[in-house]
């Protein structure tokens, strides 16, 4: 098992109602798997929100296998100005 921390910003934070979440996950869990978990946890609140992912402050263009102690940030587009 691995432990992963998710720092929540913008729509993700408001959908989940928390700033930080920690997960105990199976090894070989990927970033996309974690996104599915997050979306499920948010109910329908993130249905229309596309999310990009950063792991340990690095933007991920592709699906990535998570490692123990990774810090994940989901990046939604925000448009206010």
């Amino acid at each position: 098992m691995i432990n992963v921390k998710v720092k929540c910003f913008s729509q993700v934070k408001y959908a989940l109602g928390v700033d930080v979440l920690t997960f105990e996950l199976d090894e070989n869990t990927t970033s996309i798997d974690l996104e599915k978990i997050i979306r499920k946890k948010a109910g329908k609140k993130l249905n229309n929100v596309p999310l990009r992912i950063a792991i340990n402050q690095k933007y991920q263009k592709e699906e990535t296998i998570l490692q123990d102690a990774d810090e994940v940030v989901f990046i939604p587009p925000v448009q206010g100005g």
Partner: peptide, 17 residues
């Protein structure tokens, strides 16, 4: 880089793109 600022907690993330 992308800076994400949270004014509620005063936390920042700087993400390498």
């Amino acid at each position: 880089k992308l800076l994400m600022y949270d004014g509620m907690n005063h936390t920042m993330e700087v993400i390498e793109l």
